[in-house]
Design a protein around this nucleic acid. Sequence first.
DNA 1: TTAAATTTAAACACTTCTCCTTAACATCCG
DNA 2: CGGATGTTAAGGAGAAGTGTTTAAATTTAA
Lengths: 134, 134
Amino acid sequence: MKRGLLTSRQREVLRYRKQGLTQQQIADIIKTSKANVCTIEKAALENIARARDTLEFLYTLDATHLCTLKGGLDLLKAPDIIYTEAEKIGVKVKYDTVSLINRLRDANPDRFRGRQVREDVEVYINEDGDLYFG
Amino acid sequence: MKRGLLTSRQREVLRYRKQGLTQQQIADIIKTSKANVCTIEKAALENIARARDTLEFLYTLDATHLCTLKGGLDLLKAPDIIYTEAEKIGVKVKYDTVSLINRLRDANPDRFRGRQVREDVEVYINEDGDLYFG
DNA sequence: TTAAATTTAAACACTTCTCCTTAACATCCG
DNA sequence: CGGATGTTAAGGAGAAGTGTTTAAATTTAA
């Protein structure tokens, strides 16, 4: 039975894990291989990350579209673009240059290759100056 | 492309919706039927609910089962029960009587009818005195 | 009561997820 | 070294999710 994103198997494994059991011990209890326990646990953690991302997206719904970082753009040029656009609509960005770049990369590691934007990244900002990417 | 739980279609519909467009208008824009827009929107909202449930579950992982509020119980008696049980295990509840009742009702509106508990509610508490219901 | 907006149902092709096995590989520790 | 722990890869069967259409039903509002 699924509750939220997690299957009963996944919840089961997470519970045992929380109790400090090893994957092998859990495998014995639920009668399967340790490799399988590993896979199930991994899937569970991925599902949890996905749940977080999903709610994160909701924030972008409250936010306004600020600009698009085009594929190929140099990551270091992004802050200037963002500051300029934010000023136009009278919102103060919550991040300084360095933390903005970090936030950009942390928020979506796959979208950047080195310091280049791989594919278009939509930038949203809310009234608090918080940034979200879509 | 999926980001979190939501497909790009679902995000698209939610955004247009947030802007106040009707399903028909969106259907025209994204070139499909309004019935389909409805289905997509519904699926999106279900995914969001699922994401919430998933993270809820994580809290119960960190928390200990404190007590069960039996169906039929008077909501106003819940705080006493909870305080007593929490004291037994040496944890200080984070909420005063009033905010506890509010939290109980807000956390799961469907579980209460007036001031009566409709069906059993499991109560969990973590070491910070935070309460969760399952 | 109309018309517009929304919801539901059934069916279909496609894709993705889940759990499972087996087997190999990487660490770490005594 | 050898054993315990954890991870990864490949493959398979079955379940579930997604976007669609068409058609009917229901709700909301003018």
